[in-house]
Structures are given as C-alpha cells and as structure tokens.
C-alpha cells in the first residue's frame, strides 16, 4: 500500500476552493450566532417568564440535539410546509447553504449564550455591590462592569466554541455543499485514496483550529492586562 504524495499536492488547490465556502459558513454563522446569543442571554436574565421561557427552551433544544439532525430538519423538513414554500424566505430556505447557515447560527446562539452567562456568573458579587453602593443603576452596572469582565471570562470557552463551529461546517457536505470536506469526499470517491485526501483536509482544519486558538490567546492576554501577575 503506497501513499501517493503527488495526489495530495494535486488536490490541495481543489480543497482550497472548498476552504472559501468553509470560511463563509464559519464567519457568517459565528456572527449571526453571536447576535442571537446576546439577545437570548438578555432574554434569559430578564427575569420575565415570557422572555425566559422561550430562551431556555431554545437553548435546551439546540444543545440537546445533534447539529446534523438540526440541518436535516431545516433542509429536508421545512419544504414539507406549504407556508414555507410560499413565503418570502423560500429562495433562501431551498438552498442548502442558507439552511446550513440557519442551523449553525441557531446552534451557535444557544451555546454561546450559555457561555456568556457562565462568564456573567463569574463576576465577583462584591464588585457589583460596590457599584450599587455608589448609586450606579443595575443597567449601568451591567454595561460598564459586568460585561467587560464577563467577556474576558468567556473568552476561553468561546474560542473552543468557534473551533467546534469550524468542525461543524464539515457537516455541510452532507447536504451537497462543496466545502472542504465536500470537495474531499468527491475526490476520494473518484480516486479511492481516503488516507491521502482526508488526511490533507484534516491538516487544513487543524491549522485553522490552531490559528483560532492562537488568535484568541492573544486577545485574552490583552484583556487580562489588569489582572495580578501569576508569580507570587
């Protein structure tokens, strides 16, 4: 059994074409997901049952089911309904790309809102008391004190979530999209060389994950300037 290096190099340009789609999926979903996450978080902490209940339900459903199933429900399932087929969104919802974006964004929104909430819970209660004692209102306290600290606390978990999202984009290949994994599967089907092709694609994903981790590491370092240095 030989390892065909030549095939690897031939395939890399083709896979970089897929990289474009992978990045589109990642960036768009992360952004929309973040917006959804903030909205969901605010709903969750609002204290009003009619906001908390939908938020909690949404989080529960999207963290409790596999992303693949979420994609399938949207891509294969939505067309079942006439009101979907007739709606103004149909041109989007019939496209696998937008179905994936929808599924990935909803998924990200649920996870990230919990991550942000975890960050919020990590803020020292004493500091919030000091703010209250100074007469700072709850809303002002949330914006100027809780948020900056919570964001810094959320960074490690958030970076892990972004990396998970990067890997989740590979699922787009199950609904005909030619992201990196989709391209790879096509090439493997033609060449019967799973190791060479899949391994090279895996390497590209790993490099992406590494870069994301490094990027967030730097951001975290910057945001942690004000913390006590670790040395005793």
């Amino acid at each position: 059994m030989n390892f065909d290096i030549g095939l690897v190099f031939e395939s890399i340009p083709k896979m970089l074409v897929g990289l474009g789609l992978t990045l589109e999926l990642l960036i768009l979903s992360s952004f929309i997901g973040l917006v959804l996450a903030v909205i969901t978080l605010l709903m969750r902490i609002s204290g009003r049952w009619f906001l908390v209940a939908p938020a909690v339900t949404y989080i529960y459903i999207f963290r409790g089911t596999p992303i693949l199933v979420q994609i399938f429900v949207i891509y294969f399932g939505f067309p079942q309904f006439e009101f979907v087929r007739e709606s103004v969104f149909w041109p989007f919802l019939r496209e696998p790309f937008w179905c994936c974006i929808l599924a990935l964004s909803l998924n990200a929104g649920a996870y990230v809102s919990e991550i942000l909430r975890g960050g919020m819970l990590g803020v020292d209660k004493g500091i919030l008391e000091a703010a209250s004692a100074l007469g700072i209102s709850k809303t002002q306290s949330f914006i100027y004190i809780t948020s900056p600290i919570a964001i810094r606390l959320s960074l490690p978990a958030y970076s892990n979530d972004i990396i998970s999202m990067t890997k989740a984009t590979a699922l787009a290949s199950t609904v005909t999209l030619l992201d990196m994994t989709g391209v790879a599967r096509t090439i493997v089907a033609q060449t019967f060389a799973p190791y060479e092709i899949f391994l090279s694609v895996a390497i590209i994903y790993m490099i992406m994950a590494w870069m994301i981790q490094k990027g967030f590491g730097m951001a975290e370092k910057r945001m942690s300037r004000y913390l006590k240095p670790a040395a005793g």
């Binding site: 590979a170 790879a184 694609v201 994903y205 590494w210």
Partner: peptide
C-alpha cells in the same frame, strides 16, 4: 482539531 465527520470517514 479535526471535524468529527472527517474522522469518521
């Protein structure tokens, strides 16, 4: 660092 789907494949 590798997508689960890819590992499976």
């Amino acid at each position: 660092g590798t997508p689960e789907l890819l590992v499976l494949l």
